[in-house]
Design a protein around this nucleic acid. Structure first.
Lengths: 347, 347
DNA sequence: CTGAAAGCGCTTACAG
DNA sequence: CTGAAAGCGCTTACAG
């Protein structure tokens, strides 16, 4: 019913006066290297065009487990309204990548239920392979998919399932460590790192980078990491830090920007400016702000490139039937040299 | 291969000692109302669970000949970087609509070849029906699609092909006329309407609304419509208008915002403020600006709702096999009461 | 060079 | 009450 009056290979066969199988061979580009007369080929091609034939992706996939369709599964909406800033560039990259490879993209959003149960995850099988976007990892369903040999790639590093999940992520560790190195070079020895409570891999990686950075320059990690819910940071806290010898504050970037907002809010409330009174860096790129203001030192998250690379990795996995030497890719985060870092100045 | 070692209904049948068809009936919830012994049902269920059976969605769809796939064809990238402001809300609505209906979305990006040839348009047949987003209408290909009974819906009004193209658009005519009515009520009789050269339906509709609005309040349309390329408008022009008795300027909103930028730029250059010196309205909603500023009177384009409704209309067309009383829908544009309209003040 | 056949994993009449 | 069969639209050996 859904495909209604659409022509099938059998119809083409009738028109061209050949068998349905021959039609399949011709239209399939004769992968098997069968000997075919050019005349037959032409007749089939013409009949197909005159009938407006397009292959049924479902049947194609059933018969060959290939249909040039790559999936994109998102745990929230694919077009989110809240985290648009961080998702959108990834989607742009995914689309570009798919286009480069001549693959169509199918969005799995149809799950009427809020739970990402087995059933909704399983639908991804309609595609040749699937990208997953979002922090959530429904381990059981994903493991089942993996076990069955279905190619999938997460966008963002995932450590679940003993590292079996292929991913393309950003190297937050290195980028974060670099920020600390820069601060150390400027003479900072009293540093606070402000992060949110959420323990996503992207947050854990940043913290790890900070700690590694500190250790690399021989600084203690003691008291450095501070968690905030976004409301528990005020001018008092800032002043206390300064009294304790803090000369630089580093803050993580997240979808919500809660930690970033808390820190800049507290600095403003304390009447301090950067880098005159305090140096400030953000582990990522602060959300676009209204009005002018200094460019904050931090790094770029190569989201668009992540999207492109994830598609490419997925296509490789599809082509290689799941085998691939190293299905874990971490992309470099280019530094953003801003105006908020200065020499360490004690109060 | 893709499904690796996954158990199938045949495996369950073997374990439960029944036929594969019986397994299908039991697991399918016995839709056909077949009489089944409870004992058999139990054995099948247990066998399925013990084997960890999950149905193959591809086979399910092939057999039931439904693919629950709605297409979205865009003439530029689906995730554009330039017109993100105007496309994104539509995409959000489309996704919401698809999700509500339990349909997956397949993205067709026509721009792989710059020409939207028959082949790329025809590929949309992969889905049960397809949405088209963008000003471009490749009439021949679309007509062929229409002729074949393939359900399609444009997002945005289309007059091509003698009105045969189903669409969900915005009622720019009414919303634009309303702006003129408001101005007239405030005593404005000298009005300029600034628009770009592009003749998209959305532009034509706005102009028509302006003209109808003028005529409704007995004002002449003479000299009212001004076309700009975005660079040919300066303070001189504004001053000349004021000398000619103009007290209000209305400008169209477009993806590029060229006309809007030209007008606001010229006003700024002329050192005029709204509504103190001149009243200002925009036919649509001005792009989000950096920094504070007055809210400009205009109207909302219900893009998200357009997306939702377009999906709904498409689904209806799919279900009804192309028949539907009135496949042309125009949604209301809610007015935005801003701070840039005031009583008419001659210079 | 091309056709007939089997099969992908399921659903759905139709016989028993 | 349950099984055997046909079929969804393709691909892929395998015969001619």
């Amino acid at each position: 019913m859904a495909r209604g009056q659409l022509p099938r290979q059998a119809d083409i066969a009738r028109v061209a006066g050949v068998s349905q199988a021959t039609v399949s061979v011709v239209l399939g580009g004769n992968q098997g290297g069968v000997r075919l007369s050019e005349a037959t080929r032409q007749r089939v091609i013409e009949a197909a065009e005159s009938l407006g034939y397009v292959p049924d992706p479902v049947a194609t996939r059933l018969a060959s487990s290939r249909n040039n369709l790559l999936g994109l599964y998102t745990f929230t909406a694919t077009f989110p309204t809240d985290v648009a800033d961080s998702y959108y560039p990834i989607l742009v990259g995914v689309e570009e990548g798919a286009k480069d490879l001549g693959q169509d993209l199918i969005l799995f959003t149809g799950s009427s239920t809020k739970t990402h149960d087995d059933a909704s995850i399983r639908r991804t099988r309609l595609a040749d392979g699937c990208l997953f976007l979002g922090r959530h990892v429904p381990t059981e369903s994903i493991e089942r998919l993996l076990d069955s040999g279905f190619p999938l790639v997460y966008i963002g590093r995932r450590a679940e399932l003993g590292g079996r999940i292929p991913y393309v992520g950003a190297d937050y560790v290195a980028a974060s460590a670099l920020i600390i190195a820069k601060l150390a070079e400027l003479g900072h020895r009293g540093i606070r790192y402000v992060r949110e409570h959420d323990n996503a891999p992207s947050s854990a990686d940043r913290e790890r980078g900070v700690l590694e950075g500190l250790s690399a320059v021989g600084l203690s990690a003691r008291d450095v990491v501070v968690r905030t819910d976004g409301t528990d940071l005020g001018s008092e806290q800032i002043h206390a830090w300064r009294r304790a010898g803090v000369t630089a504050v580093v803050v993580e970037e997240t979808d919500t920007g809660a930690a970033f907002d808390a820190v800049t809010g507290a600095l403003f409330a304390a009447g301090l400016s950067c880098p005159a009174d305090l140096s400030l860096a953000v582990l990522g790129r602060p959300p676009t702000r209204i009005g002018p203001g200094p460019v904050i030192t931090g790094f770029e998250v190569p989201r668009r490139e992540m999207g492109r690379r994830a598609v490419r990795l997925l296509a490789e996995l599809v082509a290689a039937k799941g085998e691939r030497p190293d299905p874990h890719q971490l992309l470099e985060c280019p530094p953003v040299d801003g105006q908020t870092l200065g020499p360490a100045r004690s109060r």
